[in-house]
Design a protein around this nucleic acid. Structure first.
Lengths: 194, 194
DNA sequence: CGCGACGTTGATTTGCCTCAACGATTGTGG
DNA sequence: CCACAATCGTTGAGGCAAATCAACGTCGCG
């Protein structure tokens, strides 16, 4: 019984052989705060599982501004999905950086795809993960279309109540698509009316 | 050899038995222009494959405004993914309406999941479809964060050059997250500088 | 024809951005 | 452990892109 494999693949009914196989494909990585897992223009071949810590992926636009795509905490997978999953194989468009010291497990997409074929359980866990991510992407698009900056912020701290200990406000602002100044004013407005 | 199955599952190396099994799970649906496949608060259990025509999914916010989530043309799947894939099973939040006469094939998610288990080919085609959708969602979020309304519009008509024959401008506006008036002004600006 | 759906145009408002300055907090080297 | 600098957050003034509100032209269709 491999507790890491149980954690990652959410299945404790796996044989030792299977767990060993899975484990052999994972490469452990330690990241100090502010270190990068990936940078724009890097070649992208891998998926990253967050075992501990907190990461964030973001892009830098033509004007040099950062835009946060995703935060990832324990239990989440992260990568440059545009490059890794996109129609045309490209190099990374985003940066993935640790926000606090982190332990990551890396697996190549190629290996992962093979595991999905070899082990239906892995395929099924992955399928469900993709579906959940799908739903939450739709939700984010919808919120961006329908809600004010203030409402998006309230939803954010509601959805990620613990994350605000780790991430800076300007990370949140760049996730919500507003400036740090605007977020500051929103926070002020919220705090004064209570 | 079942041409419909070949079209939907992008695999012509399937046995007749397998193709028959797949075909038996599909229910053909005809939609006239403006008919609904799904409405908010309906129970959601199915996936829909667009064989012909054009559909659009949208939500109506608290102020009564429409926001387009997705367009779907031949070869695309559509459903209320927030309800169907979300963490907590809920009823539909969106409307799915045909924009022109359409032929749809419906399959229940339950049946589809069973097929994914029974037929690895189906699982793999589905996996790849999910990955592509994943990448394009990330792209859309990124574009919403980084680009002006004008740039998003230009990207849209570039990405869907044919779609503009079918969809109304106010559909596009609600997809881009702007008002019809703003889109009208953007279109004017584009046409006059050329 | 006449009505409704769709698109356009104008005047005004507004939510958020930009630019600039300045506290507060954190981190670091002497 | 303090001193100082960098990073981060806040505040203010002014500007702009897009929204709002309102009116009107145009097209297609019963």
């Amino acid at each position: 019984m491999n507790p890491l494999i149980t954690e990652i693949f959410q299945d404790d009914s796996m044989s030792d052989d299977q767990a060993d196989l899975l484990y052999s494909k994972l490469k452990k990585i330690h990241l100090r705060k502010n270190e990068f897992l990936l940078k724009a223009n890097d070649e992208v071949n891998d998926l990253y599982y967050v075992h501990q810590g907190c990461l964030r992926s973001y892009i830098i636009d033509l004007e040099g501004k950062e835009h946060t795509l995703q935060f990832a905490v324990k239990g989440w997978w992260i990568s440059d999905y545009i490059a890794l999953y996109g129609k045309t194989k490209t190099s990374a468009v985003s940066y993935i950086q640790s926000i606090k010291d982190a332990t990551i497990y890396r697996i190549s997409k190629l290996e992962f795809d093979n595991l999905c074929i070899a082990l239906p359980k892995v395929a099924n866990v992955n399928k469900r993960k993709m579906e959940l991510a799908f739903a939450s992407f739709q939700n984010r698009i919808l919120e961006n279309l329908t809600l004010s900056a203030k409402q998006r912020y309230l939803n954010f701290i509601n959805a990620y109540p613990n994350i605000s200990n780790d991430v800076k406000n300007y990370h949140i602002a760049s996730y919500l698509g507003i400036t740090t100044e605007s977020l500051s004013r929103i926070r002020k407005e919220i705090s004064t009316r209570s």
